[in-house]
């Protein structure tokens, strides 16, 4: 907790319980307000521009019941998972290989860092041209978008490993493999998790965007196809489901991060 916050508390001596209550009520009110705003907005804008929340909910329930929505979710998640596994695998293994080759690392590092700047989404048409319209171009996109944050985090994590711990492990007789596994890997786990928390939601969002551009299944296809058919309710339903999927996965990642990094002294708050 930041010191500023406690300074603010001193400045405003409101009873804590009362404030908790106010926050909860405020959140519920704001949520209702947003829903009401959506409803009114939909009524004013007309069905072509905004779908009524009730209709969207009904559509989601209907499509779930018929199984089509689950099929789309499955397709998107499958794509995201495979692409994630590929990107994440390369992102973790490559820095460990480079660790043994300092000269090569120094030579290729500036090019890898420069390639971070290439807008990956813009490569999709090229991937389609090269790899056809099946899963391959989408996997390339998801894989690349996952690869970069993971690679950068692991790469920097390896560099950041405390030399003193490595020396200690060498002195007590640990092999290079044991050092990689025990000292290096554990040291960079927080970095790795931070990158996963960026990469996993990004993988899903990349899968959806790739489906906008190519293919005939998945959440992205659902949204874009509905838009092209002026089915605004379909667009909204797709967007709501996509957002929900990403947010749920975000929440799971937060829990996992806590669990695996329990050894860390302070539970981090969001201060940078």
């Amino acid at each position: 907790m930041s010191t500023t916050q406690s300074a603010l508390d001193l400045a405003e001596p409101t009873p804590v319980r009362w404030r908790q209550y106010a926050v909860t009520v405020g959140r519920i009110l704001l949520a209702l307000l947003l829903l009401a705003g959506w409803k009114v907005g939909a009524d004013v804008a007309g069905p072509l521009y905004a779908a009524d929340p009730v209709k969207v909910a009904r559509r989601i329930i209907e499509d779930t019941a018929s199984g089509t929505l689950l099929r789309h979710i499955y397709v998107t998640l499958r794509l995201a998972t495979i692409g994630f596994a590929i990107g994440c695998g390369f992102g973790v293994v490559l820095p460990f290989l480079l660790r043994r080759l300092p000269r090569l690392t120094a030579a290729v590092e500036p090019y890898i860092m420069a390639s971070v700047g290439v807008p990956k989404y813009a490569l999709v048409p090229l991937f389609i041209l090269w790899f056809g319209i099946d899963d391959a171009p989408k996997l390339w996109l998801v894989g690349l978008l996952v690869f970069y944050p993971v690679f950068i985090a692991v790469f920097a994590g390896i560099r950041n490993v405390d030399r003193r711990l490595i020396n200690m492990a060498r002195v007590v007789g640990a092999s290079e493999a044991a050092i990689s596994r025990e000292v290096v890997w554990n040291s960079l786990l927080p970095f790795f998790f931070a990158s996963l928390r960026i990469a996993l939601p990004r993988a899903i969002s990349a899968a959806i965007i790739a489906e906008f551009l190519v293919g005939n299944e998945g959440l992205g296809f659902l949204i874009e196809n509905s838009r092209q058919n002026f089915d605004t309710t379909g667009v909204f339903a797709g967007v709501v489901v996509s957002t929900a999927v990403v947010l749920v996965i975000n929440g799971v990642l937060v829990r996992l991060d806590r669990y695996f990094n329990a050894w860390r002294p302070v539970d981090r708050d969001m201060d940078i």
Binding site: D9, A31, F212, G220, E224, V239
Partner: peptide, 30 residues
């Protein structure tokens, strides 16, 4: 100076941050 207001909007902001905004492109085109 409004910690309560910050706390009230917080979950919505976190949701907005986490939501796949680029995937909303078709909505904006609509």
């Amino acid at each position: 100076r409004l910690p309560i207001a910050t706390a009230v909007i917080d979950p919505f902001m976190v949701g907005g941050y986490g939501a796949p905004k680029l995937a909303l492109a078709p909505l904006f085109i609509l």
